[in-house]
Amino acid sequence: MIEVKGFSFTYPTGSRPALSDVDFEVEPRELCAVVGGGGAGKSTLAGVVSGTVPHLTGGTAQGTVRVNGRDLDDTPLSGLVGEVGLVMQNPFNQISGARFSVREEIAFGLENLGVPRDEMAARVDLVLDDLGLTGVRDRSPYELSGGQQQLLAIGSVLVMRPTVMVLDEPTSQLDAAGNALVFEALGTLKEQGVTVLLIEHRMERLAHAADRVLVLDRGAIVAKGTPGEVLADERLEEWGVAPLRYTVAARRAAGRGLWPARKPLPVTLDAAAAGFGETVDHLDRGDWR
């Protein structure tokens, strides 16, 4: 459970707030996506919810952030270990450097918590399998491709079974197959009751996976709602977010009367196919308009 209330934050060297008066909640079993243009404050928000900002960065903050009911202001970072997982944008920096194989690297967090060896091995192997990393388990983390390092970074957090998971563009270097694995894993997490906050650029994935979407623009939340509501908003481009082609096509078609009037603009392939299917049917029967 994530609760953020009236939160503003300015970096020590910042001239304007990186986040201003941010207000939102994410429930367990909910995947909340954060979208926005470059420099909108998305990564800062990820840091805030995972406790690294402002604990490690310094800077001035106002408002409250509560994770699983605990106020992060009075919780040291070490108090959140194992409870909040953070997958950062750059997987290279998430790799500890302290372990010499993919398998050991995934175990690193569990070792630090003193988990017994047998339990640790079972949990590590499960994660390797879920993320398709079994084939490279004995390789050095530094010999992996960028995409594989991203999977490793995700795996090393997943294995700790956090109840709140924060991911900052975790699949930017992955191909479609790797992406599918990650989103499948996120789906399983949700079922297990985990609270997920995900920063992501690929809107089509979000339209399917997210329960709710927040739009950040220059540090402020400018829209929140279901993917259908938010991603079909005509101001999306102004906020620096790419609209889906389905939405763009339907909006333009609607301008020419070629999109069913009652239907909301689509954000998924299914919705687009249903709407345009109706158009085509009517055209075929000649009873359009």
Binding site: R252, A253, L269, F276, G277, T279
Partner: peptide, 27 residues
């Protein structure tokens, strides 16, 4: 591409790949 998949779902022969191409075909 999104439009290619949409065209395929609508059973159109031959691919469309862009929004402009799709709308032309629809028109």
């Amino acid at each position: 591409p999104q439009m290619t998949r949409l065209g395929r779902r609508l059973g159109w022969a031959g691919p469309v790949s862009t929004v402009a191409g799709f709308l032309e075909r629809l028109a």
